[in-house]
Simulated scan of single mutants.
Amino acid sequence: MTWTFDHLAFNTADGQTLQDAFGGLLGLTPGRRPPFPFPGRWLYQDGQALVHVIEQPALNEAALSHIAFRTDEDAAVVLKRVQGSGLPYQLAQVPEDGIWQIFVRMPCGVVLELDAKTGIL
């Protein structure tokens, strides 16, 4: 199974400040974001959303939410591998895009988002 880095995601109360920092330092620019049921923004470089910002007003400072990787493998194959690992996970699907997201909590507490395009069911 081959994985490609996809994005980093941060939780923050102030999405604009984080957007400005990534824009000023790395030249990332805001772009399209699927209609998730929570506020946020995606920051792009050359057509790739490298940083996802999840806005949560109750936070005092920004924190890493997760690290995402993508694969061309079938989502059912990825899910079977995750289930075999015994690690806790949650499933989600990107609105409109249909990409399956498997959020896996690693032993160190870091969350990995594993993205696959084809269906699970």
Rank of each mutant, 00 (worst) to 15 (best):
39 P>G: 06
84 G>V: 02
104 V>K: 07
91 L>S: 02
95 P>G: 03
32 R>M: 10
41 R>E: 12
48 Q>S: 11
74 D>H: 06
45 Q>H: 13
119 G>Y: 04
22 F>G: 06
78 V>F: 03
75 A>P: 01
70 R>E: 02
117 K>E: 09
82 V>F: 01
91 L>F: 11
13 A>Y: 10
92 A>R: 01
75 A>W: 00
106 M>R: 10
16 Q>A: 14
49 A>F: 08
93 Q>K: 14
24 G>A: 15
61 E>D: 14
48 Q>P: 06
90 Q>C: 04
76 A>E: 13
57 P>Y: 07
87 L>P: 11
44 Y>H: 08
35 P>S: 01
59 L>A: 13
43 L>R: 09
16 Q>F: 13
71 T>S: 01
68 A>Q: 04
26 L>A: 14
44 Y>W: 14
43 L>Q: 04
80 K>P: 03
36 F>P: 05
90 Q>L: 12
1 M>D: 00
53 V>P: 05
120 I>P: 00
88 P>W: 02
54 I>C: 07
88 P>Y: 02
68 A>C: 04
106 M>H: 13
30 P>Q: 07
5 F>Y: 14
102 I>H: 01
26 L>G: 08
31 G>Q: 03
21 A>F: 11
81 R>I: 06
39 P>N: 04
74 D>I: 01
92 A>D: 09
18 L>G: 06
55 E>A: 04
11 N>L: 05
96 E>R: 13
48 Q>F: 08
71 T>N: 00
51 V>M: 12
54 I>V: 13
93 Q>E: 11
23 G>C: 06
100 W>F: 08
38 F>H: 12
107 P>G: 10
18 L>H: 06
73 E>T: 02
41 R>K: 13
109 G>I: 05
36 F>L: 09
53 V>Y: 07
109 G>E: 07
3 W>P: 00
69 F>G: 00
38 F>W: 15
79 L>A: 12
51 V>A: 05
5 F>K: 09
116 A>N: 07
55 E>W: 12
24 G>P: 11
81 R>N: 05
12 T>A: 07
94 V>A: 01
16 Q>E: 15
80 K>D: 14
42 W>T: 06
61 E>R: 15
100 W>N: 10
47 G>A: 09
16 Q>R: 14
119 G>H: 05
17 T>A: 15
109 G>D: 04
33 R>M: 14
90 Q>H: 07
3 W>V: 00
108 C>N: 14
35 P>Q: 01
14 D>N: 15
50 L>W: 14
84 G>S: 10
46 D>T: 12
16 Q>H: 12
62 A>C: 12
94 V>L: 01
2 T>F: 00
80 K>H: 08
8 L>P: 06
96 E>T: 15
120 I>D: 00
71 T>C: 00
17 T>F: 11
55 E>R: 10
93 Q>S: 07
107 P>S: 08
60 N>V: 12
25 L>M: 11
42 W>C: 02
94 V>P: 01
46 D>I: 09
78 V>C: 03
54 I>S: 07
57 P>I: 09
64 L>W: 10
65 S>F: 10
68 A>G: 05
23 G>T: 08
92 A>K: 02
41 R>L: 10
89 Y>C: 09
44 Y>C: 06
12 T>Q: 10
86 G>S: 15
24 G>C: 06
49 A>T: 11
88 P>V: 04
121 L>F: 12
69 F>D: 01
15 G>Q: 05
55 E>I: 13
15 G>R: 08
99 I>T: 15
83 Q>R: 15
18 L>P: 09
34 P>W: 10
3 W>L: 15
